[in-house]
Amino acid sequence: MRKNKFLVSLLAIILGFLVGAIVMLATGHNPIEGYTSLLKGAGFLIYSVKEGDTIIDILFNKRFGDTLLNMTTLVLTGLAVAFAFRTGLFNIGVSGQMLIGGFIGNLIGAKLDLPFYIHAPLAVIGAVIGGALWAALPGLLKAKFRIHEVVTSIMMNYVSLWLVYYFVQTFLKGNFETESEIIKSTASLRVNWLTEFFNGSNVNIGLFLALAAVILVWFILEKTTFGYELKAVGFNIHASKYAGMKVNRNMVLAMMISGALAGLAGAVFYLGYTDNIKIGPPLPAAGYDGIAVALVGLNNPFGVLLASFLFGLMNAGSLFMNSAAGVPRELVSIIIAIIVFFSATSLMFESWMDRFKKIFKKNEGGK
C-alpha cells in the first residue's frame, strides 16, 4: 500500500508538469524553454560562469541557495500539518501559529540585547513556545468538548492576524506603519559563512533546524511509545481509551507539537529571512502551503522534505522563468494546484492501479 501511495504521488507530480506544459503550449510558450528556465532559476542548470569560479561556486550558487531558503519554511509547515494528520487531527491553523511564533521571536529579537549564542536560541525557543501555546486551545476544545479542530484552528488564524496587527503597532512599531521593529543582528539566524557559501543567498541556520525537525518528528512517530500512542488515538479513540491510553492528554500534546513546529517555521521565516513582520499582508501563505506539502509528501517526514524541496524549487525558479522565457509566474501556482488535486484523488488512482494489477495477474495466469 505504501508503494502504491508513493507511485500515486509521483504520478501526480508528473501529471502536474504535463498539464503545465499543455497550458504553456496553449498560451503560445515553449514548454522546454519554460521548464529549462525554471531549473536555471532554481540553480539546477548553469546559466552563467564567471572567471575564477570553482566547482563549489557553480554548484552552490545563489539561486540554489534561494531554493533551499524557500524550502526551509515549507518543511516546517508541512511537518506541522503532517504530524497532526498522523495523530488524527487536521491543523488548519498553522498560518496563525506561525505568525504568533514569529511575533514572539521578533519581540525577543528586537527588545532584548544579548550575545548571539543566547539571543538567537532564546528568540527561536520563544517562537516555538508561542506556536505550541496558540495550538493548545484548539487541542483542549477537541479533547474536552469534541469541537472539531478545523473550526477552532481556522478561527484562531484570524484572531492571531488581528492580535499581531494590534501588538505590532502598540509594542513593536517600526519605521513604517505596516512594519514591526527590525530585530537586532544577534537574534538573526543569518550567518556570514552560509551567505558567502551560497554567494549572497539569505539561506540561514533555519535550514539545519528544519532538517533536524524532520529527523526528530520521524523518530517520535516511528520509534517511540509516545508516538505510537499519539497515532493510536488518531486511528481509534475508543480502542485507545480501552487500552488505557490518556486520550485527551495525547490530543492536546499532538496539537501542541504541531503548533510548536509551526512556531519554529515562524522563527525561521521572520528571524532568518525578513528580519521583521509586515502587518499589511494577510496570513503567511506558507501555513496553507504546508497542507499541500503534507499531502504530496504522504504525511511522512522524509516525504514532506522531498515535497517541500520540489515546491521550493518551483517558487525560486518561477521569477527567472518569467523573465527569461516570458512564462507567467502564475503557471507555477497552477502546476502546484494540479499536483495537489491529483494527490487528493489518490484513492481513485490506487483503485485503478489495483485493478490493473489484477488484470495483469489474471492474464499471466491464463498463459
Results as ranks from 00 to 15, higher is better:
1 M>C: 01
12 A>H: 05
15 L>H: 01
15 L>S: 03
16 G>K: 07
20 G>H: 03
24 M>Y: 04
26 A>K: 01
27 T>I: 11
28 G>D: 13
36 T>H: 01
36 T>R: 12
39 L>E: 08
40 K>V: 07
49 V>W: 07
54 T>D: 11
62 K>T: 07
62 K>I: 03
66 D>M: 10
66 D>P: 00
67 T>E: 14
70 N>G: 02
71 M>K: 04
75 V>T: 05
75 V>I: 13
81 V>T: 04
85 F>K: 04
85 F>R: 10
86 R>L: 02
89 L>C: 09
93 G>Q: 03
101 G>H: 01
101 G>D: 04
108 I>A: 00
118 I>G: 03
129 I>Q: 11
134 W>D: 07
144 K>E: 14
152 T>L: 08
156 M>Y: 13
159 V>S: 15
161 L>Y: 12
161 L>P: 09
164 V>K: 12
175 N>M: 11
186 T>C: 02
186 T>K: 05
195 T>F: 00
196 E>R: 12
199 N>V: 04
201 S>P: 01
207 L>E: 10
212 A>T: 05
226 F>P: 03
233 V>I: 13
234 G>N: 13
235 F>Q: 15
237 I>F: 13
239 A>D: 04
243 A>G: 12
248 N>S: 15
248 N>A: 14
250 N>L: 06
254 A>N: 14
257 I>A: 08
258 S>N: 08
259 G>H: 11
263 G>F: 03
265 A>H: 07
270 Y>K: 02
278 K>T: 14
279 I>G: 14
296 V>R: 05
299 N>M: 02
300 N>T: 12
306 L>T: 11
313 L>R: 04
323 S>D: 09
326 G>F: 05
328 P>M: 08
345 T>L: 09
347 L>N: 10
351 S>L: 09
357 K>W: 09
360 F>Q: 15
362 K>R: 14
